[in-house]
Amino acid sequence: MTITQLQYVLAVAEYKNFTLAAEKCFVTQPTLSMQIQKIEEELDIQIFDRSKKPIQLTEIGQKIVTQAKNIVNEADRIQDIVDLQKGFIGGEFRLGIIPTVMPTLLPMFLNNFIKKYPKVKLIIEELNTSEIITKLKNGHLDAAIAATPLQEEKIKEIVLYYEPFMVYVPENHAKFSKSELEVDDLNVDEILLLQDGHCFRDGILNLCKRNAQSHENKFQIESGSFETLIKLANEGLGITLLPYLHTLDLKESDSQKLKHFTEPKPAREISLIFPKNELKIHIIEALRQTISGVLRGAIAFQNVEIISPLHKK
């Protein structure tokens, strides 16, 4: 059997369809089917149960796919070893970034990175956390930037920075006169939230669940952007919470409505995450150094309490 044949097996296992798997592998469907059949004949077993729709792995097929992932990863590592030996940092690198980090962090480091490492072809996708985890596990991303900890056994996390939650309070609100807010000052029923699926939303809900004022999580409005939440707050529809880096770009009139929490400040942990097999680790490290360099001085909060991004019922 060959590495290519194993890659075909993994594609069919993922997409559960020979035609779609062939398209993703850039070969014809007959070619892919023939190569998989050769492996099955060589091993004298059936990897796939073709009688089911969609196609399913057989019991022995599940074990073979697990081993095939290890073999393909180790084969990819050979190129990593060669690149490291030559000091070469280049090639295609697929990076996922969560939506509440992308608009603020990406402009801070992207230009520096592509100038310093012109041979790296960055392919960047804006994805929510669940999509990132799935794509990392399936080998469709090399790394990602997300809120952590995620408690994923096969994913490694390197902390980039801690980003406090800021409270945006309109002038007509009862809490506007306070210079700093306690978590107990929050009433979850008046907080304007991002739409479901954003880990920043889940962090706010986790923060507010410790608050005795929280009731039945009845929210007036949910939006897909911080800008909309700010406008709604300015209309007197509630308050909202923002990540610290996002507040740096607010106009002066809106900046005056921001309130810090008292210490330890509730914050989210933003990390560079990647599979534990550490493929392309030289590019991952280059990315980490670049981001750390541009953030130095821009965000330096130490006395913080990390709020989990994981959804809690």
Rank of each mutant, 00 (worst) to 15 (best):
L194K: 13
K24S: 01
N17T: 09
N128T: 15
K137C: 07
L192N: 11
N303L: 03
L95E: 02
E92D: 10
K156L: 15
T31G: 00
G139S: 06
V188L: 13
Y8Q: 01
I98P: 01
A174V: 13
D185R: 09
D44G: 06
F109V: 05
L279D: 00
N70V: 07
L150A: 07
L205H: 07
T262Q: 12
K259Q: 02
Q62I: 15
E59D: 14
F226I: 08
K218E: 14
I55F: 12
K119R: 11
S51Y: 09
N187Q: 05
E92T: 14
S33R: 14
C199H: 13
D184R: 13
E14D: 02
Q46M: 10
I55L: 06
L193W: 08
M1S: 13
P103V: 02
S51P: 04
L229M: 05
S253I: 08
D184M: 09
F219M: 10
P243K: 11
I145Y: 06
K16A: 12
I60R: 11
K259T: 05
N17M: 13
K115N: 15
E182N: 12
E153D: 11
N111R: 11
C199K: 11
I133H: 02
D249I: 11
T262R: 07
T100F: 04
H198K: 13
G224F: 04
L32N: 04
Y244L: 06
E263F: 10
T134M: 14
E23C: 02
I132G: 03
T31W: 03
I273C: 05
Q5N: 08
P170K: 09
D185Q: 06
L295K: 05
E42Q: 03
K135N: 14
S179T: 11
I284W: 00
E42I: 03
L248N: 03
F26Q: 09
P266Y: 01
K86A: 04
L6P: 00
E59T: 15
F93M: 01
T28A: 07
A21S: 15
K175W: 10
S130R: 11
R210S: 05
E278S: 15
F18N: 12
K313Y: 12
N172Q: 11
E153W: 00
F88Q: 03
A300Q: 12
Q213K: 15
R268I: 15
K16V: 00
F200Q: 06
F93G: 01
N211G: 05
F48V: 10
F109G: 02
N211S: 15
I291A: 02
G61P: 12
L232N: 13
C25A: 09
D80F: 01
K154P: 01
I114T: 06
K175R: 12
H198D: 14
R210F: 07
A147K: 09
K175H: 13
K121H: 05
M34W: 13
L241F: 12
K178I: 10
I89P: 00
K251T: 04
L110A: 02
L194A: 08
N138Q: 14
F18M: 15
F200H: 11
F274K: 03
L245S: 03
M34P: 00
V27Q: 07
V27P: 00
L272A: 03
P107M: 06
Q85I: 00
